[in-house]
Design a protein around this nucleic acid. Structure first.
Lengths: 225, 225
DNA sequence: AACAGAAAGATTGCATACAATTTCGTTTGC
DNA sequence: GCAAACGAAATTGTATGCAATCTTTCTGTT
């Protein structure tokens, strides 16, 4: 029992929600979670308060907390904002361009390429996150970078499924290269546009995919609506 | 005991921090706050957990919570992001343009003008927030609008001092008109640029102002550093 | 038989009590 | 005289108990 109970519970619940182990609208029973984590209700409650502050769960007075899973529209909106924020990062990175930055970006993308060659989705996924975070940090705006990290984390599971689409890895890789080239050339407009498209495409493809899923689900079981 | 204690305490502490009633790095004593609010430590702790989730306070294990007041750099970064998000709102609003929207925007700006004529800063301030929120909502992206509201709330006290600068009200008003005209004309680039500049100017002016303050404070009392 | 009301069960919200950890002061040894 | 270690006071973290509120069910009346 080394680390803080609240922190551990919050992290566990957050992961569980992100991984879809709780359905939308499902109630999180304090007592059940307490016994489940082997602690009392107090740390569970504090963890739930934190989650409700970030919008992952909703808290109705004297009713309990309910998980709030984003629907297709929510995700589309989040990807749209993510695209714009990342584009801004790229733009800012251009005005701070340094040789080290460019080589670091190229190395990060090389790591992506290596994973793509092996068709290793998990490794590509890690390298991809590193690549994007590098751009966040190179924006020079810590607040912006933090917001990007938050959104990146929140969209993580949805982006992950995206990568399994055939040919997506190589296409993603090429888009990365476009971004790096634009930053290296010090062209903020081009860099921003390249990164915006790169992220937007994921959002739109995912949106289509999810709409299709829902259509199928609706056909299978009419009670889904 | 009408409303939720936690909610009330969180709101009160948030306002207190926003209004600068707590210095940066100041420790928030749970026991003291509990007696101060006339409750036990439990709801105070839950409120503090929520605040720590949003980054207003930092929580060190077994050490307590400490308020995190943004410095000049933090504020500059936040205004920069705010400008970009609002610009995106304006851009999106252009693609959803409706007659009702434009008239609503004009009315909101007319309210600003009325307040400016009377040199009534408080009223202008309210009308100004309404105007901006209208654009957030007209983006059609609820997630984006929510993020804008959050930032608007967080930057509220700093923006407020800004409005006292001589001639700022009329200038702000003119900038609003530029934004409305661009949206009415359906020109996303112009609308985005106009709103971005409108917000950026505030950030930069505030940054200069605050740097000056710090310089003065440094001269007055050398221990400030 | 159906609906309204009340009581019982369950669950959240808050208070208090206890345990663990940290911090500060004092003392002791070098 | 200084430093290190021990101890006490203070503070955070967790557990438990109780009150308030909501939900469900049962009963009585229409």
């Amino acid at each position: 029992m080394a680390r803080d109970h609240v922190e551990r519970i919050e992290s566990a619940l957050q992961d569980a929600i992100f991984e879809g182990r709780y359905a939308d609208g499902e109630r999180l029973d304090e007592t059940r979670l307490a016994t489940q984590f082997g602690v009392s209700r107090t740390p569970v409650r504090e963890a739930l308060r934190r989650l409700s502050a970030t919008g992952l769960v909703e808290q109705h007075a004297n009713r309990g907390v309910f998980v709030r899973q984003p629907g297709p529209v929510d995700l589309y909106e989040m990807f749209q904002v993510m695209a714009e924020l990342e584009a801004f990062c790229a733009r800012l990175a251009c005005s701070r361009i340094a040789p080290d930055t460019v080589t670091a970006l190229r190395h990060a993308n090389d790591a992506c390429a290596a994973a793509a060659d092996n068709n290793d989705i998990d490794t590509y996924y890690e390298a991809n996150e590193t690549f994007h975070r590098l751009i966040y940090d190179e924006s020079g705006n810590a607040f912006l970078a933090a917001r990007c990290r938050d959104l990146q984390k929140r969209l993580r599971p949805y982006r992950r499924t995206q990568l399994r689409a055939p040919g997506r890895l190589t296409q993603s890789l090429a888009e990365h290269a476009q971004v790096v080239d634009a930053i290296a050339a010090g062209q903020p407009d081009r860099a921003a546009a390249a990164l915006r498209d790169h992220v937007s495409v994921q959002g739109e493809k995912f949106h289509r995919l999810m709409s299709a899923w829902r259509a199928v689900a609706r056909t299978d079981s009419p009670r889904t609506g």
